[in-house]
Design a protein around this nucleic acid. Structure first.
Lengths: 195, 195
DNA sequence: GTCTATAAAGCGATAGAC
DNA sequence: GTCTATCGCTTTATAGAC
């Protein structure tokens, strides 16, 4: 086994993928050693706090990625571009639902208690940026927040549905509908409910 | 510590709650012994296959509950009642998003591979019942399936969002919007897009 | 059907050499 | 910064008495 020399920053994406695939509890140090190719001592050298520090670093790294590629565009791009940009970015990032959202997954069991602030911060930031964007697009505040929640829930739920059924067409099915909100539904209405 | 005499069926709801709170990997036998109050040997007596058999039994029990309280009503109730009935049932069952969906949570990590058939079956059954109901309500087949996927994703995503932010108002916010589908959105359209 | 005791492996984390 | 070796504890699972 050839052992390389690592930098902390190079380890984080590998750690992220391991936590994504196995969950926090399922990602044992032994597994992490095997999958990263890094030695036990190297890992504890870079992350003296052990597994918890590794996961925290991963969550911070995820938050930074979303800040750059999702939240800031939502805050600054013209409304017409912002949401399609977000849809494209999350579709690629989550690999059409075959790659999970680590933050969402950590939220579901006791792991949440370890990283509660980071997890809440991630979703609150997303909700704020998206509803701000919808607000600028002309929706009243209540409706903007409601649709932001609906949209983020749709993305998270689409991941669950896709992973559960192993069919990523379901991801695209759900995502397609959030990209095309009420205006499109009026067409269905025109056909189905003439009243 | 007073030790009771258990029956297998009485253990299953307790096991379900433990798996929900800790995840499959996080739910150790020691924890299960402590939380159920059952002895180690009793557990292996009822579930010779160990933890995997416990989780399988829990998943079967969940599937049965949904069959009775969600899927069969969707298949048999008049369309106007079926979906509000489902909304009420899932809102109570998932405690407004503070209690997770075990099947959805298991789908997110490697645990999925252990129970892949049961997990896929649960969501496929839900999708089939709900889209059948929407079909009877007058939606064309494609639209019915798409809205079924959207609705189930919304429920799953609402749970993630609620657990992540510890605010169950988000659950109700998301659920309220699926309870009011195209017919109601046409009202919004009447206001917002006179074209 | 439940008890106590224990085997055998895996766990997170550390020590000390280089 | 990485190595090997190991500590102390927890894990799943089983054995045998009652």
């Amino acid at each position: 086994m050839v052992r390389q020399i690592f930098e902390r920053e190079d380890l984080i994406p590998k750690l992220a993928e391991i936590f994504r695939q196995h969950g926090y509890e399922g990602a044992s140090i032994g597994l992490i050693v095997a999958e990263t190719g890094a030695g036990r001592s190297s890992l504890y050298h870079f992350f003296p706090g052990g597994k918890e520090e590794m996961a925290a670093a991963v969550l911070d790294n995820v938050a930074l990625w979303f800040e750059t590629h999702i939240f800031t565009p939502l805050d600054t791009l013209p409304e017409a571009e912002a949401i399609p940009t977000m849809i494209r970015a999350v579709t690629e990032y989550f690999r059409s639902g075959q790659r999970i959202c680590l933050v969402g997954a950590f939220a579901l069991d006791r792991t949440r208690d370890l990283f509660a602030e980071r997890i809440a911060q991630y979703f609150d930031r997303w909700l704020a940026s998206l509803s701000g964007c919808l607000r600028r697009a002309g929706l009243p505040e209540d409706a903007a927040f409601a649709r932001a929640a609906q949209t983020i829930a749709a993305i998270q739920g689409a991941i669950v549905l896709t992973r559960a059924t192993a069919r990523d067409c379901l991801f695209h099915e759900v995502i397609a509908q959030i990209a095309a909100p009420s205006p499109q539904l009026s067409q269905a209405d025109a056909k189905d409910s003439p009243s």
